[in-house]
């Protein structure tokens, strides 16, 4: 068959030279390469003790954000559940009652909000889908567990605590991403 492009180049037709036929030069060359690595610093991260810094946009465990005043952002619109390809998000919407204004930012809120972490594929589509900047993926990783049931993360694990906020400002999906 003729050349389909004019850019072909045969790369594997070099015959073995006599030295290569002797085995030894290539073997010694290879051993020299590995020998040099004997004195090279290893690249290993001793994981539980040392931790690698993840990219700020890493898609790890979810967080349900609160606003500056400590109110939950989520308004239970359900967009994240729709956007989830794994169908891992479940929520029950509730009406905000009087006296709960300091807890929830909008009139509706999520009474229960559950993510099945075993189903979740951490694709980040829920984060994109959320119009209220409520759900974010963070650079924390989801811990492993012995029991299957513990992976249904409810609001107790998802909503960020008031006193220890989770920093997501570096994520470009936040509102800080103004342009034009």
């Amino acid at each position: 068959m003729q050349s389909l492009s004019n850019k072909r180049k045969v790369v594997s037709d070099k015959p073995m030279t006599f030295m290569e036929k002797l085995y030894l030069p290539a073997i010694i060359g290879g051993m020299w390469i590995t020998f040099k690595h004997l004195f090279r610093k290893n690249n290993t991260i001793k994981y539980p003790e040392e931790q690698r810094v993840f990219a700020p946009v890493y898609r790890g465990m979810h967080v349900l954000k609160r606003d500056e005043e400590g109110r939950e952002n989520c308004t239970a619109c359900g967009l994240c559940a729709v956007a989830c390809p794994a169908e891992a998000i479940t929520m029950v919407a509730g009406e905000r009652k009087k006296g709960e204004e300091h807890l929830y930012r909008e009139e509706k809120y999520a009474e229960t909000y559950e993510i099945n972490m075993l189903r979740c594929i951490f694709c980040g589509l829920c984060e994109e889908a959320c119009p209220k900047e409520a759900v974010f993926l963070t650079d924390r990783i989801v811990p492993t567990e012995f029991e299957r049931g513990t992976f249904i993360y409810g609001k107790d694990k998802l909503v960020e605590p008031v006193d220890s906020r989770i920093d997501i400002t570096k994520r470009q999906h936040t509102g800080k991403r103004t342009e034009k």
Partner: peptide, 9 residues
């Protein structure tokens, strides 16, 4: 069984 279809539109 871990899915409730009502929430997925």
């Amino acid at each position: 069984e871990d899915k409730d279809d009502r929430f997925f539109g």
